[in-house]
Design a protein around this nucleic acid. Structure first.
Lengths: 221, 221
DNA sequence: GTCTATATATTGATAGAC
DNA sequence: GTCTATCAATATATAGAC
């Protein structure tokens, strides 16, 4: 493998990400990708077999990166509270989505199409995310850190709110006049989700002044 | 206009909805639509000018139907509390999405593609939905029925949770083992959203207690 | 209003030279 | 590893007969 080859491969992948994001998979041609990447069309088949293989490569890469981050999260927080671990995991997912916002939107769009690949992604990766979040909630319930809530329902609400801004960034931009990729918004979203979790997971005896202040504080979104 | 013409038009639209939903707009060909509708290919151009015109027709129809329902909602509830009106609007949106789940998923997917039409849909219809929900919240704040919450944030959270199950029905099916179109789920989602609203919109002077929520509950069905 | 036939363009993918 | 040239398939859209 020549030194230039890795660069070519990366250039193709980056061009594909950009185009898949804005036009969708079926709306993008291999010719457009080659032009954008400034490489010859034949090299796409050479490196990724075909257009679908290129998409698969991008998707798998994305989720492997996400789970590396979530794994790190778990290692660092093992000794702390379940709430703190959960909070860090949510924050990590949001950060990752924001950093890779183009792939995030593209994957979520393509996930909503009926296809073999979409079903595989769901049964592997989305299930894993659900499992990771559920585990922490369930452990917190067992340890009596959390009340006995409906875990699946909470996870679904979490995913709804985590995914929305990065699946529909233009809605945020053109309807709410918010830039979803900006650091302020990432912080705001994270803090909103913390509030949501606190409201649901707060034990009866654990009302703290800090939390109350934070609840009042929201309003800068 | 012959009697058969309206039927043909409907058959084409229904076939398109079915195929756009499962394969996406760019992933569907006019030949497939004609075959599925059991009409001649040329009739698609005849009735809708072209493929894009067909999509536009479906989208506009969808949102006009939704706003007819929301308008009815407002008329019926004018004399009741803001919470009750808000609850009914949320429920109406969920019901509509469930009844037209194929168009709902298709529109939301296509909305996430960078295109002229997508931007128009957002600036007209999504903005309108946001405005309708915001208005009720703002009125409730003025009438001191609601505390002074951050309206845009609440609306965004609402939309996140309302859209998610119908944008990604397969995630619910294959990861959560829930059928998003079923009546039980529709009721569950509605009731979850009511709980969410109650938690956020609880008046300031309302001392937190188990039975206090029942006072507000009169607003729900 | 419906059809056949066709024009025109574009698609993804690759064989074979370098 | 990279390129040119090209194939075969498929796309949308329409002109004109009925």
């Amino acid at each position: 493998m020549k030194r230039s080859s890795e660069l070519t491969k990366v250039k193709i992948a980056q061009a594909a990400i950009q185009l898949f994001d804005s036009q969708g998979f079926d709306g993008t041609t291999v010719r457009q990708i080659a032009r954008q990447a400034e490489v010859n069309i034949a090299l796409i088949s050479y490196y990724f077999k075909n257009k679908k293989g290129l998409m698969e490569y991008i998707m798998v890469n994305y989720y492997e990166g996400l789970f590396r981050r979530l794994a790190k999260c778990k290692d660092q927080e093992e000794l702390d509270s379940c709430f703190s671990l959960l909070a860090h995991m949510v924050q990590e997912i949001i950060n990752y989505q924001s950093e890779s916002h183009k792939i995030t939107r593209f994957i979520h769009r393509e996930l909503s199409v009926e296809s073999m690949l979409g079903r595989e992604i769901m049964c592997i990766y989305i299930k894993q995310i659900k499992h990771d979040l559920s585990s922490v909630l369930e452990e917190g319930i067992i340890l009596e850190e959390f009340p006995s809530i409906h875990v699946d329902g909470v996870v679904m609400n979490l995913l709804s709110m985590i995914y929305f801004p990065y699946a529909y960034p233009q809605i945020l931009r053109e309807v709410f006049y918010i830039e979803p990729i900006s650091e302020p918004f990432v912080n705001q979203l994270t803090s909103d989700l913390m509030d949501f979790l606190r409201r649901i997971l707060q034990p009866v005896d654990d009302v703290q002044g800090e939390d109350k202040l934070r609840n009042i504080k929201k309003g800068s979104l």
